[in-house]
Structures are given as C-alpha cells and as structure tokens.
Design a protein around this nucleic acid. Sequence first.
DNA 1: TTTAATCCCTATCGGATTAGTAGGGTAATA
DNA 2: TATTACCCTACTAATCCGATAGGGATTAAA
Lengths: 136, 136
Amino acid sequence: MLSKKTKYGIKALTYLAKQDRKVPIQIATISESENISVKFLESILLSLRKSGILGSKKGKGGGYYLLKDASEIKMTSVMRVLEGPIAMIPCVSLNFYEKCDDCPDENACAVNKIMLKVRDNTLEIFRNTTLADLSN
Amino acid sequence: MLSKKTKYGIKALTYLAKQDRKVPIQIATISESENISVKFLESILLSLRKSGILGSKKGKGGGYYLLKDASEIKMTSVMRVLEGPIAMIPCVSLNFYEKCDDCPDENACAVNKIMLKVRDNTLEIFRNTTLADLSN
DNA sequence: TTTAATCCCTATCGGATTAGTAGGGTAATA
DNA sequence: TATTACCCTACTAATCCGATAGGGATTAAA
C-alpha cells in the first residue's frame, strides 16, 4: 500500500510543478488546494526539502518551490524519498538491500524471482516518468 | 512491503509444486524445509485452502496439496488471496476499488495516473507467471 | 524596530496492522 | 480406539501510520 505521505507528497509536487518556479508557494495554499492537513503536509515538504527536491524560503512571502525543472525530476527519486524502497521485499532492493534470515539461497528463492521482475518493471516506469509528465 | 504472510505463502506453494500432487504434505514438513513457524504457516495454508488454491486431507497421512496443476495457478490469484490488492492504491484497484475522499477528479489526479501504469505492469507480470514458472 | 507571516523541529498519541503464540476442538485414518 | 493432523478462536507484543500540539527561528515588510 502506498502511504498517505507519498500520496500527498506527489500531489503537492505536481501542484508546485504547475506554478511559476520562482515564486515560493505557502504550505497553506497547497494544503487547501489538495485537501491535506497543514501540519502533516508540513512534515512531508520538509523531507522533500532535506532530500534536495524542494527549496524553501523562510519568513513573510516565503514558501516552497521546485529546485529543478519538473521535467528533470524523476519519480524514482520522489518515490525513494517519500515511500522508501521501490522493491516489495528488501532482498531485491537496489537502495535498501537486506538479506532474508530464512532464505539460504536467493537464487533459488521463488519470492526473490518474481519480486525481482516486478521491481525491474516498476523501476522502469518511475525512471521514465517525470513530474512534468504527471502535471499535464 | 510484501507481508511475511505472502512471502511464506509463496514459498509453501512452490514447495508443494515440486512434490507429487497426489501425496498430501504435512504442515510440519513444509515448516522445517522453509523455516516457517508451524502455527503461522498453518493459518496461511488455511486461507489458501479456503480460497480454493489448496486442498487438504485430515487424519493420519493427511496434509495439503495443490488442487490444480502448478502451471495452471497464476500469481494473480495467489497474490490476491495472500496480499490482497495488487494495486498500490485503492483508486486504481480492479478487485478492491475505493474512491479517495480527498480527490475530486480521478482523471486529473497525478497519483492515479502513475499508479495505474504501475498496476497494469505488475498485473501483467503476475498474469503471465504461474507457480510452475517459479518452482523451476 | 516592531510585527506578523512562515518555515523548522521535536514530541506525543491513538488506532490499525502484523507476526507470532497458545490452547483446545474436530475429523479422519490405521 | 488411539493417534495424527487439520481446524478455529483468541490473545499479545511490537511496530507503523497519520495526525496533532506547541513552540522556536527566520525573514520581509510596516
């Protein structure tokens, strides 16, 4: 299941992608437009800023803005920041790899086999999709 | 994240797929071979039986067995029984559809758009993969 | 210089889910 | 009839999620 964090994060990012990048947008504005609680959205935007996808400006007239052009922001990085691993199980994850305790041989493991396929495919989609694609 | 229930379920099913279908296999046997707690495995096999993927035989010499040939058991049905929805979000789910409260228009929703792609792709993989494919 | 807007950070909390445990009931077979 | 093994219910510890609360720091504008 996709977490609400990810869902809201993607919505907020596509909202920003539709705006003039030079004008910071306030949390409250996005919150109203996308029906997201202000405080929860705040924490989401914060993590997007820390990961280098968003920039922010403090004080009056401040807000959040995309650091790069929407067409240069791939869904792979967005998903990894918001949702974490793209793979459904750690033993097939590129960025969050972990061995299974119970599994003596990954190459012989049926779960590994099928989930690897799924990961490859999903990854391909996220790699070829940018924020610009989603905001049209 | 794939639940352990699903992971163990797939492992148990591929184990059964390697055996003679006419001989019931006991829970304890699968449990030992695949490193799964007996009781937890018991509840998993039970739900696989209730959903019509496995058959069971009680009493001495009893156990579980595949109801169909491994090559006829698609991963779509296995995943739906064990994990539930294949889609990452209910608004793009075929079998577990639900509308999002916060979303006025699904066709204009970026999350819907990208997750629909992912679902289509994942579904395609599960449809074209059978237990037989995994047990080789 | 003051004020108000806005981001920034930490802590907390209820509810849901997960993974696993325990214990006994029931049916089938030798 | 004794044994084996499935079947079912209930419980629990741990974890995660979504949300809330409250204040602190920074900046722009009056």
